[in-house]
């Protein structure tokens, strides 16, 4: 598979993540969409790492960092979801309107 093919797969994955992130009202579904987009980025990095970069450690480390950050992010995100659920008994993003004027 060529670089272009990998990039296209990444773009497709990103688009799917985008659909997930934009169309759902459930916070968890949103999170899933975001995760998909991050993974699309990872895929791109890995592909570039393989086809363009001379030192192959760079891309891998980037991806590892992304994975680490994703873990941190998910931890926070999920705890927030739990907190919200406790406060609202719902995790529908559109019902969280307390801050809106």
């Amino acid at each position: 598979m060529t670089l272009e093919a990998y990039l296209l797969v990444g773009a497709a994955l990103f688009s799917l993540g985008l659909i997930g992130a934009l169309s759902h009202r459930n916070l968890i579904a949103l999170l899933i969409g975001i995760e998909l987009m991050m993974n699309a980025a990872s895929l791109n990095l890995m592909a570039f790492n393989r086809f363009v970069v001379t030192d192959p450690t760079t891309g891998q480390i980037f991806v590892l960092i992304i994975i680490g950050l994703a873990a941190a992010e998910v931890a926070i995100f999920l705890s927030i979801i739990l907190r919200i659920y406790r406060a609202y008994h719902d995790i529908d993003a559109e019902k969280l309107t307390k801050l809106s004027g």
Binding site: V9, A12, L13, L16, G17, I19, G20, S23, I32, G33, L36
Partner: peptide
């Protein structure tokens, strides 16, 4: 892609 579609 299938997984992504399912997720989305």
């Amino acid at each position: 892609l299938i997984g992504g579609g399912l997720a989305a």
